[in-house]
Amino acid sequence: MSSSVADTKPGDLPRTPRDWVPLLLVPALMVLAAPLFGNVSSWVTLTTAGLAMGMMIFLMASGLTLVFGLMDVINFGHGVFISLGAYATLLVLGPLAAWGEADSLVLNLSLLGLCILAAMAVTAAVGMLFERVIVRPVYGSHLKQILVTVGGLIVAEQFIHAIWGASPITVALPQTLRGAFVFGDVAIERYRVIAVVIGLAVFGLMHLVLNRTRIGLLIRAGVENAEMVESLGYRIRRLFVSVFVAGSALAGLGGVMWAFYRQTLTAGMGMDVMVLVFIVIIIGGLGSIGGCFVGSLLIALTANYVGFLAPKLALVSNILVMALVLIWRPQGLFPVNRQ
């Protein structure tokens, strides 16, 4: 970029009205919830559990929200990529079971890494196929999109059953990732820390890509006004396919994390968590990555807090959060300006 321009820093720049309020919701919730528990240790446990779960939901939801933003395509079959990612771990866990049993952090983390790579590769490939066969013929019609992607979901779930069997499969966490870090009477499960780290890393990376690279700018521009992006000479279709594939791979990553978190695999596990994913992207504002991140944490923390304080209301609490957000901002926390 031209230095003569990049260096311009006039003093009287008008301030950008930044929309901070939604960003404060998560810390506010954490602080306000604290007194309800009476002791630090359960608050810390629940908060880390909530953050870990939030990160996983974010991984699963981010691709979906971008796909929607970019091409106005809603994929009700997105949950399949979560399940598929989870099952793909078996491809690695089978031959490399010894790595998981070994009492070595390096081997254990490598195993997790390989699981993630395998899952992302599988889900990216299936995502490409899914986009081609299922989604492409139904651009422009939400009704058909919903129907066809639900159909794709049914078929893909049945394939999972056919390949891996219909009964639940248990997966064990690698040896050194089990257990908790203990500080006094506060215990933090190791795996949750890993989930938070991976989630933050992906969010950071995504933020960088979206803000610092041309393809990221194109995605953001495309979410706002796809037609103008085309008029500038870019092929939005290609961009969309790459986002769809990347979103599927991220769902696969989320699936791996979710699989080790639950330690049980079922073909329907993706669809189960899709309920939360939909709530999150509605809360965040369809097409908004930032909103998706905030929404994920908000939902997961609420679910964990409520699950502890009033277990019966856990899932209902999500509906309540969603209702409150929509009353406050009918288009979600960060409404995306679409043209």
């Binding site: 970029m1 521009a221 500038l232």
Partner: peptide
């Protein structure tokens, strides 16, 4: 409608136009 990308900065709008 001008087709400005309102979420992008002025610079980013111009950067995108320069293919």
């Amino acid at each position: 409608s001008m087709g400005i990308f309102t979420g992008l900065t002025v610079r980013e709008n111009i950067v995108l136009a320069a293919r």
